[in-house]
Design a protein around this nucleic acid. Sequence first.
DNA 1: CATGAATGAGACTTCATTCAT
DNA 2: CATGAATGAAGTCTCATTCAT
Lengths: 193, 193, 193, 193
Amino acid sequence: MENVISRRDRKKVQILNTLVDISMELFVAKGFEETTIADIMKSADLGTGTFYNYFQSKEDVLKYVLTQKFDQAKNSLERLIKSTISPQEKISQILVILGRIYEDNRQLFGLINHLGPNQPPHGPEFKDILVSIIDEGQKNGDFRKTIPIEIVIETFMGLIKSAATSHSKIPFMENLNYKLDLFLNGLTEKNNK
Amino acid sequence: MENVISRRDRKKVQILNTLVDISMELFVAKGFEETTIADIMKSADLGTGTFYNYFQSKEDVLKYVLTQKFDQAKNSLERLIKSTISPQEKISQILVILGRIYEDNRQLFGLINHLGPNQPPHGPEFKDILVSIIDEGQKNGDFRKTIPIEIVIETFMGLIKSAATSHSKIPFMENLNYKLDLFLNGLTEKNNK
Amino acid sequence: MENVISRRDRKKVQILNTLVDISMELFVAKGFEETTIADIMKSADLGTGTFYNYFQSKEDVLKYVLTQKFDQAKNSLERLIKSTISPQEKISQILVILGRIYEDNRQLFGLINHLGPNQPPHGPEFKDILVSIIDEGQKNGDFRKTIPIEIVIETFMGLIKSAATSHSKIPFMENLNYKLDLFLNGLTEKNNK
Amino acid sequence: MENVISRRDRKKVQILNTLVDISMELFVAKGFEETTIADIMKSADLGTGTFYNYFQSKEDVLKYVLTQKFDQAKNSLERLIKSTISPQEKISQILVILGRIYEDNRQLFGLINHLGPNQPPHGPEFKDILVSIIDEGQKNGDFRKTIPIEIVIETFMGLIKSAATSHSKIPFMENLNYKLDLFLNGLTEKNNK
DNA sequence: CATGAATGAGACTTCATTCAT
DNA sequence: CATGAATGAAGTCTCATTCAT
């Protein structure tokens, strides 16, 4: 009784994960519209109809995965925010973490449009983390106060996107660091006055 | 006799424009994939087959319009580059011009993914214009030389995208100006004074 | 348990046969180009899309049937060739067998052009059977040696086609026998006696 | 007034001939179904609609040409029949003439199916010519009388088709002559008895 | 829960033919 | 007579979804 997870349930989870993995692989390889449910199930060596025991639609799989990824990112950030390093250092680290996630799932995030205009799978909590850091930096005089926080955040997120979608030959992380430099330099209060 | 363009040809151009307008309207309203050729032609009150007298596919319409828009942007920039104002001022003005175009066609540019990964309809000339300005600024000591030009440009273009896709309540142009401030501040050499 | 073929699979075979039968019927009745896939499926009282669970195209059905027929003919001939009757007698019998098959499927074979120029569904083995018989006859002095074997075979096959596409009122088998007479008389060595 | 053919009419005939030539070229090159009227008129550098001033349909062009070819063949034969050579020699000559025509227009005659089942563009007069020759040969004892005339004719025509559609490497006319040998040998009364 | 054949709506596309200019 | 844009019927094919087994 205590053993809540039966063999049956374990198998269910296993199949679900297989489906998710295969779906993402195919979405990235062939594109979302071009991937059919039959494709997915054939790759998974399962019957077509079985798909509907796990998801309601193709969009559903996508939403499921993107949500997973965002949760994962959020967890990493939450751990970071509790540390005692300076806001600038935090920003740097966040950029690296987010950048890495973005890089790993670059193509995946590109599929976000297929979820319709009002379905970004990330809650507002995500933004809150950033706000608190910027806020901290502005309060202790490290960051300029003339720029609204939301602008700073948008710009910050823009950097990541920009680096992830870059066509330049500069490696991703290097690219990201240059942009971070520009950004922090722009954000920082110039005390030599 | 003097009238080289026959009534027939005038009608053709007229229909082409109608088709473009209606297509874009529908693409923005319903989404690209969701808009069928039949939809377009019904809205235009024309036979379905007529579409193929003007375009080869839906993608074709989109490409046609985006190319138009980019050409229009390029023209505006080329006029600007010949003026004698400072690089910083040029950058400002460019951002404003591009920003305005971007704003006017915000939803349109969002459709760019539907053209496949390597089909952005803007040639390399576009980038060249920016390069020459940054270059000028770096040479006369206004801009930092430690950041590679391509990074600067990517960041710059990222600003526009970021402002255009912003969900914030701050108006677009104001949003853009804040980001420009951040960017120029980050880009500017600030040792002395 | 013993029954390896499930009811489902039996039904599948059944439908496939139905589709083949109906297709051929319609091809013969209305012509190949004039028969649409919707026609076939409506006659079969099945959904249009179901066609594509069994065949890839109309051509595919035709190829399938013609291959079947040719295989059937080949089997009949292979049985015959092992008997010990004289080459002349063999030729006669072959003509009768092929003739009958041809007659039964006269209209069907007329559709062979729709498979493209180089897609006759009969392999080279078919010809080999005839070659061996003619060869035997030439070796034992029954048949003239001045005519190349391939010519003999082509002429022979021509007889069948000619009889099968005849517009004459003479019944098919009689027609065929007359032509066989002409052919064998022409082929036979007749100097001595 | 006496000059019945105006410049206008001459031009009309010229266009008609152009259309016929181009049509046949395309029919042979791309196939009948695959050739569109637009194709033809584009090749002819004329407007699509103009086609209908000359023909009623694609089938119409085909019928027109095939009739022309058959008439041409008939003329050749009619000239031949009046000569005083032996029936055997006549048959030989006819075969050569028909064979040549067939060879020149091999692909064209292959299109004959597109005219529907009951539209062979050759009148009965064609057959009559052959009948009279065979008849002559049977009467003077050259040809066997046991074979019905229509069978002989069908077989004869079959030879030509067989040679024309041959896949063998033997050149067409040689192929034809071999078959003629077989045929005449089979048809000839063997007087050494 | 798994299966996979059946479904049929609906998208795309072609093209013979018409007709206003 | 020539033109060629407009037409829309018709055909092919795809695929998410259902459902009997």
